[in-house]
Amino acid sequence: MKIVIADDHAIVRSGFSMILNYQEDMEVIALAADGIEAYQMVSKHQPDVLLLDLSMPPGESGLIATGKIKEDFPETRILILTMHDDEEYLFHVLKNGASGYMLKNAPDEELLLAIRTIHNGGTYIHPKMATSLVREFISKDAGDKHSDPFELLSKREVEVLPLIAKGYGNKEIAQKLYISVKTVEAHKAKIMEKLQLKSRPEIVEYALKKKLLNF
């Protein structure tokens, strides 16, 4: 199977490449340092599997890249690699199309199992996180209606939110995302409406709570 690895640490990319290229059924065909480069490599090589780091500052994060890549290249299976054992990250990337979620401190054998599982059409969740997923399904089955408003945000709004919280003005955000100032203003209004926030300080507080300032 053809594999692309996206991680902001060169030593991690090299380490994973050595492990995977040693396998008879795996070949690492490209490397990327952030979500934007990951998208480019997937577009160019059409890999079977993408190993995607969740947090890749200062570039585009895996959280944002997952949805974009899955939407444009649905045949590529995405395995999220992260140090975050946070269920909010797990739910968000799975809803955006990831096929697997595992922690970086897992043993090599588990990484290989996860890759082969998702390549064969399955889903792989790190055992430590699987309990959270089961708990979420049980909660929904019991009629829990308290959904997280963050799930209402579009992919672009998820990009705009941390930039607002970091203090960028509308013009700066527009330049970074290659959109118009008017579009940024519209996204900002929608974000505040969906999250029921009334000021920039509240946006900052929300972003801190959601750990979005790392992205």
Rank of each mutant, 00 (worst) to 15 (best):
I3R: 13
V4R: 02
D7S: 06
D8M: 05
D8C: 07
D8T: 02
H9T: 10
I11R: 12
I11N: 11
V12M: 14
R13A: 08
R13V: 12
R13Q: 14
G15E: 14
F16R: 12
N21F: 10
Y22C: 14
D25V: 05
V28A: 09
V28Y: 09
I29Y: 07
I29P: 06
A33N: 03
D34T: 15
G35C: 01
G35T: 01
G35Y: 03
A38P: 00
Y39S: 06
Q40C: 04
M41S: 11
V42E: 07
S43Y: 01
K44N: 07
H45E: 15
D48C: 11
V49K: 13
L51I: 10
D53P: 09
L54Y: 12
S55N: 09
M56R: 06
P57I: 06
P57Y: 12
P58K: 10
G59L: 00
G59E: 00
E60F: 06
G62E: 13
G62H: 09
T66G: 09
K68R: 15
I69C: 05
K70G: 02
K70I: 04
F73G: 00
P74Q: 04
P74R: 15
E75N: 11
T76L: 07
R77N: 15
L79G: 06
I80D: 02
I80C: 09
L81I: 15
T82N: 12
M83G: 03
H84V: 04
D86I: 13
H92R: 12
G97L: 02
S99L: 13
S99E: 15
G100W: 06
G100I: 05
M102R: 07
K104T: 15
A106N: 11
D108M: 11
E109H: 05
E110T: 08
L111D: 04
L111W: 04
L112V: 06
L113T: 09
A114N: 05
I115P: 08
R116M: 01
T117V: 08
G121A: 14
G122T: 08
G122W: 13
T123C: 15
Y124I: 13
Y124T: 03
K128N: 14
A130D: 14
S132R: 09
L133R: 06
L133P: 03
R135A: 12
F137P: 01
I138D: 15
K140L: 15
D141V: 15
D141C: 08
A142S: 08
A142H: 08
S147M: 04
P149E: 08
L153P: 01
L153F: 02
S154E: 10
S154M: 10
S154C: 11
E157Y: 03
V158D: 01
V158F: 04
L161R: 02
P162S: 03
I164Q: 13
A165F: 13
A165N: 04
K166A: 10
Y168A: 01
G169R: 07
A174D: 00
I179Q: 00
I179E: 00
I179L: 06
S180E: 03
V181C: 07
V181N: 13
E185D: 10
E185N: 07
H187D: 08
H187Q: 14
I191M: 08
I191Q: 09
I191D: 08
E193I: 03
Q196F: 03
S199F: 02
R200E: 11
R200F: 02
R200S: 09
I203D: 04
V204S: 00
E205K: 12
K209R: 09
K210A: 13
K211F: 06
L213E: 11
L213S: 01
